[in-house]
């Protein structure tokens, strides 16, 4: 017979979404922020991002080639996503060797030690970032001033740091600047508008659902609003303070791209909301009362650790059960 008969159990069709497509979509969603960042901080942004991506892919390849047997996961772009996200968490003035170390920690320590894609309990890019933050605090917190894009410019404090250290009031940084990235900060966190554009793209491509990002940001806003109320703020500050916290720092980058990382977020919508509320509360606590001006990374990592517990106890609503 000219035919070869193929047999398999049902189903016999597959949705068009593949792991590679999902990861590619995440990279595409990050491109607007990359463009804005390049405009703000100059071409060095591209170089850091490229280096980070290259190192992540290289480490993943080497580990898979020589250390653990298993399928090659390079073609599915997950290392690219980690690389871009790691770069987005670094200041534009970072020395190149710190990027390499960060990529190594992210891929080798945070991802591959646990078995690679889908098995890592903590977000690799964030582990890389937090490691660098603790190991190289000076380089990691020296942010070049934007505007002229020159790296010889004076290092400035981020908006959050400025507010934290009482250098400025929360309303000193305009909403417009926060949206368009006209402020110092790490690569990916400076342009709220570009990140929101990426969010819309991810929603449209059904890569993520709105629950986790929106819940995180809403929690932060409510938290900030209550704090503002309790300390007796009035008038414009009542909405400016929450808005500032939602737009400033890594809130959007973390909420949209980091907290929604598949393997480190809960499997159910209900669980995702619990997870997101936790992130929002911890972030605000660190921002307002902790030692660091920014708490998003720590908050996500802390809640990452809770995810297995959430998955164990928060089950989806079963059909037919009250």
């Amino acid at each position: 017979m000219a035919n070869k008969f193929i047999v398999s159990p049902a189903p016999h069709v597959q949705s068009a979404q593949s792991t590679a497509r999902i990861m590619r979509d995440v990279v595409i969603a990050l491109i607007p922020a990359l463009i804005v960042s390049t405009v703000v901080f100059g071409a060095n942004v591209l170089w850091i991002t490229a280096l980070s991506v290259f190192c992540c892919m290289l480490f993943e390849y080497l580990i898979q080639r020589f250390l653990c047997e298993g399928a090659n996961t390079l073609p599915n772009f997950s290392a690219v996503v980690t690389g871009v996200l790691l770069a987005f968490n670094l200041p534009a003035s970072i020395p190149w060797w710190i990027v390499v170390i960060g990529a190594f920690v992210a891929i080798a320590v945070a991802k591959m030690t646990f078995g690679g894609l889908g098995k890592n309990p903590f977000n690799p890019a964030l582990v890389g970032r937090v490691f660098l933050l603790i190991a190289y605090p000076v380089q990691m917190t020296s942010f070049p001033m934007p505007a002229n894009g020159s790296f010889d410019a004076l290092s400035g404090a981020t908006a959050l740091a400025a507010v934290k250290h009482k250098l400025a009031a929360a309303d000193a940084v305009g909403v417009q600047d926060l949206l368009l990235g006209n402020m110092p900060g790490s690569l990916g966190e400076v342009a709220a508008a570009a990140l929101l554009l990426g969010f819309v793209y991810l929603l449209w491509r059904k890569v993520i659902t709105w629950h986790i990002p929106v819940t995180i940001l809403a929690t932060m806003a409510v938290f900030a609003f209550v704090v503002a109320l309790s300390r007796g703020d009035e008038g414009a500050m009542l909405w400016q303070f929450p808005l500032f916290h939602v737009l400033a720092g890594g809130a959007l980058l973390g909420a949209i791209f980091m907290a929604t990382d598949y393997s480190t977020s809960p499997m159910t919508v209900k669980g995702g909301v619990i997870f997101a509320v936790g992130i929002g509360v911890i972030t605000m606590c660190i921002r307002l009362w902790g030692a660091y001006p920014e708490g998003m990374s720590f908050a996500i990592l802390v809640m990452n650790a809770v995810v297995p517990l959430i998955n164990k106890y928060v089950k989806p609503k079963r059909f037919g059960l009250k």
Binding site: K4, F5, I6, V7, S8, P9
Partner: peptide
């Protein structure tokens, strides 16, 4: 061989099917 099994490589899966 008269056909090719394309499901999960498990005797139990194939045996339950055909």
């Amino acid at each position: 061989r008269t056909n090719e099994f394309d499901g999960a490589a498990s005797c139990a899966v194939a045996s339950a099917l055909y």
